[in-house]
Write a protein that binds this DNA or RNA. Structure first.
Lengths: 208, 208
DNA sequence: GTTAGCATGTAAGGAGTTACATGATTTT
DNA sequence: AAAATCATGTAACTCCTTACATGCTAAC
C-alpha cells in the first residue's frame, strides 16, 4: 500500500509556505515562526531533515546555484555553501491539497489546527466549515469534562489551582466564541454562494 | 555529578498530585487531566512508565495489596491484578520541592508553566514571582517578534492568516494581562508580609 | 579584522503517543 | 451474562529538540 504516512505539522506548513513562494531553509523557518509564532516554534534540527524528506518524496525540488560557469575548474566544486532554494513540484501541490482537504482530528486538534487554519484560503469552503465545527466540538468536550471535574471537587479549594482552571476555561470559552463567529461567517458565505450560483469558492473534486 | 536529568512535565505533575494524597495510576491520570485538561492530556502509555521510573529512583513507593493472608496457597499469587497505590517518599518530597524551587525556562515555557503554576501553593513566594515575571517576559518577546513580523509583511493580506495572527495576539495579550494582575497581587502580599514580619508564606531554605 | 547574523546540516536522544494486550469490578 | 468502566502494562514509533559542527557575508 502506498499509504503516505507520517505527516506532522511541519510538512504541511512547509508545503503551504512554499506554495506561496520558493524559499530557502533559513527564510522558511523565519516565515514559519512568524506565522505560527504564537502557538509553536520550529528549530533547524527539524526543518532541514523535513526538507530532505520532502525532497526524497519528490514533493519539492532544490535549486542549488551549481556554480554554472565552466571556467573556474580549480576551486572546490562541492564545497560552495550557499542558499538552496526549494520549490514545490506538481506532486507537492497535490499533496498539499490532499492535506488541506482532509477534515479529521489532525486538522482540529491543538497541534494541527493553527497550521490548517493558516492555509484556509487554499481549502475548500465545505472542508473549512467541517474543520471549524470539529474544533469547536473538541473544545466543548474539553469544557464539559473540566467543568464537571470542577463541580465534583468543590471542596478542594487551592487558590492557584482554581485560578489556573478558571483562566483555562475562559481561554477556551473565548476560542469557542471566536469559532462561533467564524462559523457564522462561513455559513453566510456559503449561503450567498448557493443562491447566486456561479462557482464555488475553491476547486471541488466531485459535483456531488 | 548526580545531576538528575530528564524531568518532563509528568514527573512534576505526578509528584505534585501524590503529595496531596496517595493514589493509584488510573485515578492519577484522571486527576491529572482534570487539573491540566485545558492545556494537555496524558495517556497511560506515558503515565505508567513514568511511575515505574519514579519508583526506581526511590521517589515513590508502591503499595500492592500483596494478598497478605497465608491461607489461600492455591490461587495464583502473582496474577492478582488490583490497584497499586503510590505514595511519595521523603526523597520524593525533596525532589518535588527542588522542582518547584527552580525558576527557569522549564517553569515558564508553554509546556511547564501550567504544572508549575498548579502547585504554586507549595512554592516559595519569591520563586512564584520570578516564574510569573519570567513567563510574562517570554510572552512579551513573542508578542514583539510576531508584531514586528506583521508590520514588515503589511502587503500580504491573506484574510485567514491575518485572522489567526490576530486571535493569537489577543490570546497572548490576554494572558499577559492576567499575569500582570497575578504579579500585582503577589507583590502586594510580599509587601504585606514584609511589613508585618513574622514568617514568610512558604518554607525557605536560606535566610539570605 | 572581528563580531554578528545568515545559512546548512547531523547525531543523539527526550518526551510522549498509539495500538495493543490483559484482567477485575461494577452496572444493566 | 453482557457491557461498561476500572485498572495495569508494553513495544514500536513519531515528532521534535539540543547540542554540535561548519562556512559564508555584511557591518562595525
Amino acid at each position: 500500500m502506498a499509504g503516505k504516512k507520517g505527516a506532522g505539522v511541519l510538512e504541511l506548513a512547509v508545503l503551504g509556505l512554499l506554495h506561496e513562494a520558493p524559499m530557502h531553509g533559513y527564510e522558511l523557518r523565519k516565515r514559519l515562526n512568524a506565522l505560527l509564532g504564537m502557538f509553536r516554534a520550529f528549530s533547524y534540527g527539524s526543518l532541514y531533515p523535513c526538507l530532505k524528506q520532502l525532497l526524497a518524496k519528490g514533493l519539492i525540488t532544490e535549486d542549488r546555484p551549481e556554480d554554472r560557469d565552466g571556467t573556474t575548474a580549480a576551486l572546490p566544486l562541492q564545497s560552495r555553501r550557499s542558499k538552496i532554494v526549494y520549490k514545490l513540484t506538481a506532486e507537492g501541490k497535490e499533496r498539499l491539497q490532499d492535506l488541506l482537504t482532509e477534515a479529521g482530528p489532525a486538522s482540529w486538534e491543538d497541534e494541527g489546527f493553527g497550521v490548517h487554519f493558516a492555509f484556509f484560503s487554499h481549502t475548500r469552503a465545505d472542508v473549512r466549515l467541517r474543520i471549524l465545527e470539529g474544533r469547536r466540538s473538541r473544545l466543548e468536550e474539553r469544557l464539559e469534562s473540566v467543568r464537571s471535574a470542577l463541580a465534583r471537587t468543590r471542596e478542594r479549594v487551592d487558590t492557584y489551582t482554581l485560578e489556573l482552571q478558571n483562566h483555562g476555561l475562559e481561554s477556551v470559552e473565548r476560542e469557542v466564541r471566536w469559532l462561533n463567529e467564524l462559523i457564522g461567517r462561513e455559513r453566510a458565505e456559503q449561503e450567498q454562494a448557493r443562491t447566486s450560483n456561479t462557482t464555488q469558492d475553491m476547486p471541488r473534486e466531485t459535483g456531488r
